[in-house]
Computed example of a mutant assay.
Amino acid sequence: MGPSSQSATVTASLDQLETVAAQLFPAWLPGAEGIATTAGGGLAAVRSLAIAHAAGTAQYSPFLVDLAVGALAGAGPNTRRHPPEMRAAGLARVIAAALGRPGCALLLRPPDDLDENEALALVRAAQWLVDHGRLAVWISSGSPAPGDLLPEAGIARPAGTTAAGRPGPKVHSTVRGTVRCGRTTDDHYPGERQPGKSRRAGRHGKPHPASRTETLLEAALATRPWAVGRAWNHTLSPGPLVNPVRVDLLWKRERCVVELDGDDHRSAGKYADDRQRDVLLQLDGYAVLRFTNAQVHDDIENVLALLQQFLATRRRTRKGH
């Protein structure tokens, strides 16, 4: 994607999502498997199926009808008459359903020469897509994206390209959403961020001694030679106009951030704050991995395996440059 305003970036992203949805048709419309053309009663049948499917789901019937008709006819984008908020939510649901996943993520690849105003417009557009589409949005700035580096995380990638043949936004459907993570309610240490409370910073460079999750993960990482170079509770400055960001765990050389979230991160406000932090860090070239507290406590070997694979791929990429 090229330099653009917030609204233009949102529109272009929604059009690309619709292109992917059309490519996935009829996987998201039960009963349409045998309808391949508009000939005969094809259009009427697709309309009827879309109306029936919308009645049993959260989809808006006229939107789903337009999407299905456009996908069958090969004409798109065909849903622009609907509000962008409706398009974002509807397209995200359709793509996730087609791939059998609970949600999907959008990868944006901006050019490297964005000025500050263009970068801010991109961040705002990404935040808009998060808020209205319930999408996870990744911004890749010259660095490998999490979806490209974690195939074992269950990520499927129908690739999209622009009319000029350049890579455009890609849609990722992932088992874990945004490779997310966090703490349970009984794991808050004094001053740890909870709803309505601020978080007191942990010890710079070390796990917070009162956090069982950080202590447990550090104990496991300390036995793994590949985990060298990590630092806990580190502060990053994504840009001159952005407030510093305190991260839980960092591999600075590999530009990898790991966040461990509590149950409070499920709230709408905290979720939005997290996505904005992630976007700012991604614009600065960092990949942000998130794990639930249950993952760390109940399936730590899987967490370690994902981290090892991610770091190994980052290190190979750096050597390749």
Rank of each mutant, 00 (worst) to 15 (best):
S140V: 02
L24S: 05
V247I: 11
D278E: 13
A159T: 10
G320S: 15
R47D: 12
A159Y: 12
L283H: 08
D248F: 08
A159G: 02
L24T: 02
V257F: 07
L64I: 05
V242E: 13
S173P: 01
V123L: 14
A89Q: 09
E33L: 09
S198N: 08
A92H: 03
T57P: 04
P26G: 06
Q309L: 15
I35D: 03
V296N: 04
D15H: 12
R93Y: 06
A312Q: 14
E218I: 01
P102V: 09
A52E: 09
G196L: 11
V228A: 15
L129R: 10
A163G: 02
D131K: 11
E214T: 01
L67F: 12
R183G: 00
L241R: 15
S143R: 15
P195N: 07
R193D: 04
R193N: 03
S173N: 00
T235R: 13
A268K: 11
V303T: 06
V175R: 14
A136K: 11
A98W: 05
R47L: 05
L217T: 00
A71D: 01
L24P: 03
G133Y: 05
E259Y: 00
H297K: 11
A136W: 14
E301V: 10
L289I: 08
H132K: 13
L122W: 12
L221A: 01
G160F: 13
D115F: 02
E116N: 04
M86K: 06
E152P: 07
L289Y: 06
G74Y: 08
A55M: 03
R277F: 13
R246C: 03
D148Q: 14
P190K: 08
D284C: 09
N302P: 00
V65P: 06
P195R: 12
R157Q: 12
P209D: 05
A12N: 01
